[in-house]
Amino acid sequence: MNLFRLAGDMTHLVSVVVLLLKIHTIKSCAGVSLKTQELYALVFAARYLDLFVHFVSLYNTVMKLVFLASSFTIVWYMRRHKIVRRTYDKEHDTFRHHFIVLPCLVLGLLLNEKFTFREVMWAFSIYLEAVAILPQLVLLQRTRNIDNLTAQYVFFLGAYRVLYIFNWIYRYFTEPHFVHWISWIAGIVQTLLYGDFFYYYILSWKNNVKLELPA
């Protein structure tokens, strides 16, 4: 495993820890999109079907379990926890996330590395992950007071995607057969979605003012 990949996984992990920290200790999910969290839970459930079939490494298995458990825990908190759910900004989290699941599934059926159940689900999860951040970005635009933890959560999530692209470039040149067009193209699309956010995040950090996204 190269350094970019490890750093990418770690920033992904940090983003989840930051979000859980906010939800668990502050008992608030203000500014967090339940729609995005539900999509991530679905992404991991679809992608990690191989958990029971292929063993890659202990690292791989543990990380998969962590991402599965954390994504479902976050959804549980936002839907069921009696204090946390009251802080959910339902009025502004209006992105119609169900409507992006079906196109991703169709895309997974049409564009995959092999037409098998697991490969279709893998491709589906890649396409869905690429757009899963959209409800969260829309909610951020509509949130007046974006708290630091929410902004950091999205920042680390975006950093993870950027680092994965460096990881692919590195692997492309160091591993002779490493070609995954589906994840590369979807990954680049996903990273581009963060462009605007990064711009305003860095600007707010430089000027030492609270993050605000223009509508």
Partner: peptide, 10 residues
């Protein structure tokens, strides 16, 4: 076959 390898990324 390029797609035969086990997918090792998260």
């Amino acid at each position: 076959d390029l797609s035969q390898d086990v997918k090792d990324e998260l």
